[in-house]
Amino acid sequence: MSHVRVAYETFQKTAPGAQAALLAMGKSTEESGLDKSIVELAKLRVSQINNCAFCLQIHLNVARRLGLAQEKLDLVATWHEAGIFSDREGAALAWAETLTRLADRSVPDEAYAAVRDHFSEDEVIALSVAVANINAWNRLGAAFRFAPPIAKKVAAAAA
């Protein structure tokens, strides 16, 4: 079982400028008008790929508050095979995966063309900012092993 290396609260106190910048970046996506459900699905998928339990739990909580279907939350990891995601959701998930898995490759023109089939240029920019933002959060959350919000409640109840 892994343990917290740095508490999220310590990160907040130690790097308030970094936290503020990441929150501001997220706010820009919220203000873009892009469908929040699509953004949350993308954040969930990226957080799964990056193994960030902290971000995964946060975005599951947000997705539930938005009313995303439980079936979609359950199957986002296997969205290709699930058959329950709209073409637009699938395009966002594919784009999120492409931008997250950049090691040793570039973003293919075909991937950009595919996302543009379902999103305007402004929406692709907003979606890309959201994916870049969650990737940054994931790297911090995974590096420091921030405790997922639910784990904090369980730990507090056990104390």
Rank of each mutant, 00 (worst) to 15 (best):
L41M: 14
E81H: 15
D122F: 07
W137N: 07
F11V: 15
F85G: 12
E97M: 11
L44Y: 06
D104W: 07
K43F: 06
V39W: 07
R116C: 05
E123N: 03
L41W: 09
G90Y: 01
G33T: 01
H80Q: 13
V124F: 10
E30T: 04
K13V: 03
S128T: 02
N61F: 03
W79M: 07
V124W: 04
E9R: 15
R64S: 11
L23S: 13
T29F: 06
L99T: 00
A126Y: 06
L73I: 02
A136P: 06
L23Q: 13
K43S: 09
A21D: 01
K43T: 01
A142C: 10
A92V: 00
R145K: 12
Q12R: 14
I49C: 13
I134A: 08
A147K: 03
L102G: 05
L140W: 13
A142D: 07
A103G: 09
T100E: 10
I49M: 14
V131L: 12
A94V: 00
A82I: 02
W95G: 01
K36L: 13
E40W: 06
A92Y: 03
P148L: 06
E81I: 06
F85N: 09
S120Y: 08
A63H: 05
D109I: 01
H80F: 05
D87H: 14
L44Q: 08
A63S: 14
R101M: 15
S128C: 06
L34P: 09
R139F: 06
L73H: 03
V76L: 12
S86K: 08
N50F: 14
D87W: 04
V154M: 13
S47Q: 11
G67V: 07
H80D: 03
A111S: 12
Q19L: 15
E71F: 11
N61H: 10
A21P: 03
Q48C: 11
N135H: 08
V62M: 04
E9F: 09
K43V: 01
I84D: 01
K72V: 05
A143G: 15
D87N: 14
A82C: 12
L34F: 08
Q19R: 13
R88D: 00
R116K: 14
R145C: 12
E30G: 14
L68M: 06
G83F: 09
H118M: 04
T29R: 06
A20V: 00
E40H: 13
F144Y: 15
F54S: 11
K36M: 01
H59E: 07
R145S: 13
N133Q: 15
T10Q: 13
N51K: 15
R139W: 04
A114C: 09
A132R: 03
K43M: 14
W95N: 00
E121A: 15
E121M: 09
T98R: 06
D117Y: 02
I58Q: 12
L22A: 09
P148C: 07
S28C: 10
A126T: 02
L73S: 05
G67P: 02
D74A: 14
E81G: 12
G33F: 09
